[in-house]
Design a protein around this nucleic acid. Structure first.
Lengths: 104, 104
DNA sequence: TAAATACTTAGACAAATGTCTAATTAATAA
DNA sequence: TTATTAATTAGACATTTGTCTAAGTATTTA
């Protein structure tokens, strides 16, 4: 929990998470999005990994980073103790609104 | 958003929030729960207030602190962008299970 | 093999953070 | 009014944090 809040307490790292929301990225691709040296990027990614917010896998000379949201569920649970669990939807997913009508 | 994560990035401050969940407390009552000097406590409370997580009102020589969860909703909304908004319950509150039975 | 590319590790350093003691302000009690 | 109590403000100081440059490790390409 401590590592989680620590990891989230930085705008660069939060932005990294938002980038990864759209899909996996290599360390270099992430670095391209920031005006910061690669070592600094590497360090931020390390903190995110320590918090369990991202996973990294090596593919050849590239390292791909993937968002891991399971640890955010823990944060969500913590939050619910304050905002009241009434915000949580415990009911089963609603049926699709009828896929026979429109596609897009 | 920055002040919020900053305020939450400390175990003492998070514990303070949990204490206030059970009810309002004066600065002194809060200080009693920690092995830390009052000025340090005061400083932590100040950061919580800056983040909008607590409100403070002066009553005589006492200052009472109250939990303010509205800013946590903002965090909740941010979180939902990651964990998937399906967890959010958007339906109206369910009717009370029948108030004619028990009082408590 | 040698050079280039992708990334991390090591170490320095300024800025931010958490804690303390001492002093200050405000309100109550003697 | 003077003393006491509750709390904050000011300022010092060690630790942590974010950033950088330089160097190191793999991996791919020439």
């Amino acid at each position: 929990m401590n590592a989680l809040f620590k990891a989230l307490n930085d705008p660069t790292r939060r932005q990294m998470l938002e980038l990864l929301r759209k899909g996996d990225l290599t360390a270099g691709e992430i670095a391209d999005q920031f005006e910061m040296t690669k070592p600094s990027i590497s360090h931020h990614l390390d903190l995110l990994r320590q918090a369990g917010l991202v996973d990294s896998t090596k593919n050849g000379q590239f390292v791909t980073y993937t968002l891991n949201t399971t640890v955010l569920d823990e944060l969500l649970a913590w939050l619910m103790n304050f905002t009241g669990s009434s915000l949580l939807n415990t009911s089963p997913p609603a049926p699709e609104p009828d896929s026979s009508k429109k596609s897009s």
